[in-house]
Design a protein around this nucleic acid. Structure first.
Lengths: 238, 238
DNA sequence: TCAAAAGTGTTATCATTACACCCATGG
DNA sequence: CCATGGGTGTAATGATAACACTTTTGA
């Protein structure tokens, strides 16, 4: 059943860059091994063609689930890649999405169109199909930028977590050696978005205070800060 | 000459949100009056269908020029809008671009497909075609965010400008009443990206120092700051 | 009692904010 | 000489960075 148009149309796909954090110590990306040509056998980002009746976001979530079994993630639009030549099949424009998830909460399973599914450490990626290396680079840059001004990190930790875990998470995503413990804690605590919820037990050192993230307080903070920002003007943070 | 595909394809368009600053006092947006259905006669963002051989960015620049006569602008990808139903003709996905230009440098002229072209103040926009109001809202939010950490404002001023002009520009784009003069100056000067280049003449008040933007110094600053940032870690600016 | 990680005190420095004030020019 | 914008002084407050130190646990 062919579809005919008066003018030629690029094909439209979506791709997903799913970052996962592995015991808060290593940043990984979810890849599939392609089951069809082009690039059959190569590793690639999960993704595929957009259906006519779905939103771009639904398409991304659908393809993600179909190819990897991963669901229930908050994805965000990253960028649209459309150079002629990025796909050997012809003109294909791809809208990329990204997300950050707790790796343990999201078991993967190989599925349609994919010969395999696996998490790869961001610094040990295999050779990838299409321009997916570029897409990943853009996503990683965006992830770091976002982490600096939004507390996305909290979603990756268990309900209750220690400040050391949180700090490790930041170090991992930002790719830095070590943040100063004192200053990290001061800054985080001063924000006032954490609740104390008991202490660690059964560890061979001083037990840590456990915290949970208080979404209410965070939303409130956002509103206040926004008012402030309007008044203050510029920041030039770089 | 019809084009036939095995599966249906959405159509792909680009749209341009061009912000212009009018003597640094009012923020405007470039709109065209549509010459064809759908929405014939309505005002809309300049834009149109992507050709098979051009990049998305070229498509945006081409359509912008064809419809408004505006050229030589630095556009940046904003977001891709793809809800089914955003275009009455059927499924149309649009990649939006945005730019900020000096209004006086960019004379407009009505052209193909457009019955009219004009700059509209952002707070006096007419009713727009498609979901273009939403696109503009997203663009304006992005523009403000960007202005806070990148000196995009400088491109809108004459080669030599006064600090008061610069301040006014910031106030306009951010949409705030009035920034504190003392603090604005301190902050800008402390960045060290301005060069003194003579003084004003012929004004009925104390003549202002003229400055130019030093791109070299700015690039250097960027590099230094980036190193710094890697070391420091988080910011949580909101 | 020791290793390991949690957690705190403190200080110097820097940036931000808020106000009040002075300066140079043309009309 | 005065209205008009240009431009500066300064002090209180708050944030950041750096470093050293104390605490609590299980083994």
């Amino acid at each position: 059943m062919p579809y005919t148009y008066e003018y030629p149309r690029p094909a439209l796909t979506v791709d997903c860059v799913i970052f996962g954090l592995d015991e808060s110590t290593q940043l990984k990306i979810l890849l599939i091994q392609r089951g069809h040509d082009p690039f059959k056998g190569s590793w690639a980002l999960p993704g595929g063609f957009v259906d006519m009746a779905e939103t771009l976001e639904s398409a991304a979530l659908r393809e993600l689930f179909e190819e990897t079994g991963v669901k229930d993630v908050f994805i965000e639009q990253l960028y649209t890649f459309g150079s002629p030549g990025r796909d050997p099949r012809g003109r294909v424009v791809s809208v990329a999405y990204y997300a950050l998830v707790n790796l343990e909460d999201h078991p993967v399973e190989s599925n349609s169109d994919a010969e395999g599914v696996a998490w790869f450490a961001t610094d040990e990626l295999p050779k990838l199909a299409f321009d997916h290396e570029e897409i990943i680079a853009v996503a990683q840059k965006r992830l770091r930028a976002k982490l600096r001004y939004q507390p996305i990190g909290f979603e990756l930790l268990p309900e209750k977590f220690t400040l050391s875990q949180l700090q490790k998470l930041y170090e991992t995503i930002l790719g830095v050696e070590e943040l100063n413990k004192r200053n990290f804690r001061t800054k985080i605590q001063r924000m006032g978005v954490l609740n104390e919820v008991g202490v660690q037990t059964g560890v061979a050192h001083r037990p840590a205070q456990l915290y949970s993230f208080d979404k209410e307080k965070y939303e409130q903070l956002l509103r206040d800060k926004y008012q402030d920002m309007l008044k203050r003007g510029l920041d030039f943070e770089i």
